[in-house]
């Protein structure tokens, strides 16, 4: 089984002091209010994935969010998976069904404007 992890609201079982420190060093942050983890930095994405994988005892993939329809999907669903140089970083992308839509760039630009808070 593969576990898909998003950028925010990551719930982990009790990991202990050492593992917690490992996770912080690997780029995870901890939200004391919601008691969930979130990805703060992707400088050590591979290390982060390996540590999470040890905790969950399973393979980890990061979730992608379709900027156009909001669907959450893993990278390996995408036809560009093998050619993408930034695959499996949790980020915004375009899902395989939206990619076939006409006037794709205009759709993307509209959503992107809203997302970055600039109009």
């Amino acid at each position: 089984m593969v576990i898909v992890v998003g950028k925010k609201g990551i719930k982990l079982p009790f990991v202990g002091k050492d593992k917690f420190a490992d996770l912080m060093k690997a780029g995870l942050g901890y939200d004391r209010v919601t008691r969930t983890f979130y990805i703060q930095s992707l400088d050590y994405a591979d290390r982060l994935k390996a540590t999470l994988s040890e905790i969950f005892k399973d393979d980890i993939v990061f979730a992608q969010i379709c900027l156009i329809c909001g669907k959450v999907f893993p990278c390996n669903e995408c036809e560009f998976f093998n050619d993408c140089k930034s695959n499996d970083y949790p980020s915004y992308c375009i899902c395989k069904s939206c990619i076939e839509k006409p006037k794709l760039f205009n759709l993307y630009a509209d959503k992107s404007k809203k997302f970055i808070g600039y109009r």
Partner: peptide, 19 residues
């Protein structure tokens, strides 16, 4: 304030080329 950038993903490049 460090802001990390990644390579642009192929679907976005494809959308731009189409335009």
């Amino acid at each position: 304030l460090s802001i990390q950038f990644f390579r642009v993903r192929p679907p976005l490049i494809m959308a731009l080329l189409e335009r």
